[in-house]
Amino acid sequence: MAQDEFPDHHEDTDFDNPFQPPSSTGAISATEDDGERNGPPWEQDGPFLSRFWNTTKGVLFDPKETFLRMRREGGMGPPLLFGFIGGFVAGIVGAVYSYFYMQYLTTLDPETFQQPFGPTAQFVLQVGFIPVSLIFFFFFGSGILHLMLLLFKGANHPFQTTFRVVVYAYGSTALMTIVPGIGNLAQFIWAPVVTIIGLSYAQNTSIGKAAAAVLIPIALTLLCFCGFFIFAVAMIAGQLGNV
């Protein structure tokens, strides 16, 4: 087909028509991806807690198998609910840690640690912002990742696939921040790893392209000081709140 012709809709069209699900041409071998994609435990029948915990365990400790079985499409609602629950629980615990830590610091040195709002008001604001920030992060983060995959010709399936990976990855790794002291650092390291593995198996692309899609935005954010500042404040605040 000449390069100036529009590709037929039945052929592989990764970047040309992002709204058309293309056929797979990725690096994952057929033997690894010919199993049935029936979804993680969260999308099966069973008790709520059991489904949530088994999905979290699968993402954290066996991401390859979990994302090999993850459905690429089938609605954004179920994964969004999973991610929301994981993120909200982690957010509430983080807000509680921050509350007690700020109370302690304010008692030690009231002048230095004076805040525009008292600890209770900050706690309420922090908790109130969790749902909005989660929704924003899931969609904006997935959008950035999918754009990066498109740029590297690694998006062999539509946006919904990327979204599902991001939400399951974050909803599971967010719970690592419950661990005081090292939780945030552990999540900072393991969340990109899980997302890279998930994208490579779900989008049927190479680990290299998935890694580039995930790591380049993180690196650019850290290199840009404004982004680094915002990121560092959030990390430090979260880390101090977990001490």
Binding site: M1, Q3, D4, E5, F6, P7, F15, D16, N17, L151
Partner: peptide, 17 residues
């Protein structure tokens, strides 16, 4: 609105960013 690009145009966009 839905936009479709040819292979050539998609490659051009990838490089231009």
């Amino acid at each position: 609105i839905r936009i479709e690009l040819t292979h050539k145009e998609a490659t051009w966009v990838r490089w231009s960013i």
